[in-house]
């Protein structure tokens, strides 16, 4: 599978990353190479092998339904570039 220029532009837009047109060809080549490298895995016969979700034999840990966090508004907002009346402030989103 290879990635073309248009796909690079689309992924960049979805990820909100600015990629100048001059770099798109170069990136398409790089990404295609990465995909080709990973594609080697498809040569392995995985017939009847369950997908592996973790490298360690462990199960998902559950927490009890207990309120033991929150109430730290200052710590939540302290790094916000903009805030007002306890809210985060962001540029107006027009719907």
């Amino acid at each position: 599978m290879s990635i073309d220029r248009a796909t690079v532009a689309k992924i960049a837009h979805l990820a909100r990353i600015k990629v100048p047109e001059a770099e798109q060809d170069h990136l398409a080549g790089e990404l295609s190479k990465i995909l080709a490298f990973v594609e080697q895995l498809s040569e392995v016969d995985t017939e009847g092998v369950a997908p592996m979700s973790s490298a360690v034999a462990t199960t998902l840990r559950w927490r009890p339904d207990q309120v033991d966090d929150g109430g730290t508004r200052e710590a939540i907002l302290v790094n916000a570039p903009d805030r007002a009346e306890g809210f985060f402030g962001v540029p107006k989103v027009i719907e």
């Binding site: 339904d65 309120v67 033991d68 966090d69 710590a75």
Partner: peptide
């Protein structure tokens, strides 16, 4: 209906002061 959130220990109660029921996970 639960006391705490799906992936954190912050409260779910409706109508609290803004950003007062928020853990670092939720933010």
């Amino acid at each position: 209906t639960s006391k705490a959130k799906l992936f954190s220990g912050a409260a779910t109660a409706f109508g609290a002061e803004p950003n007062s029921h928020v853990s670092f996970v939720d933010a």
